[in-house]
Amino acid sequence: MGFKEFCFKKSLWLFHFGGASCNNCDIEILACLTPRFDVERFGMQLVGSIRHADVLLVNGSINQKDKVRLLELYRQAPKPILVVAIGACGCTGGIFAESNVFAGPVDKIIPVDAYVPGCPPKPEAIIAGIVKLLNKKPAKQKTA
């Protein structure tokens, strides 16, 4: 086992990027941290900087203003990094896909490792999605 694989075995640290979303997925991600769901029992916690993170959670449709910043965040992230698209908007654009400011679903912008569909996905679904990432090899990284 190499060092990088070892890092993804346990205790993934998450960074949350909220795109142009309706806030539902954001609060469901927060709900994952609270006593009923308690994602910390997997050693997972939200961190304040992308430079500390193993996983980038992206939710919401991405508009033109967000796109630039998402690319910049991805560039700053330590590689390899796992990317999770959360919610219908993150996966496909959802109801906002026809919008005039929509700049493409997340996987058109950066490579995505896991998709958690739902509007909004239940905290159980989010946890299930992230736990599946333990021991997973990240998708081929884009060198941006």
Binding site: N63, I95, E98, S99, V101
Partner: peptide, 26 residues
Amino acid sequence: YNHRGIEKLSESKTFDQVFFLVERVC
């Protein structure tokens, strides 16, 4: 950072569909 163009999108939806759209304003 959060702009989604909802008012414009609303004009392309039927009245029944607009409910699902405005629900996702917030």
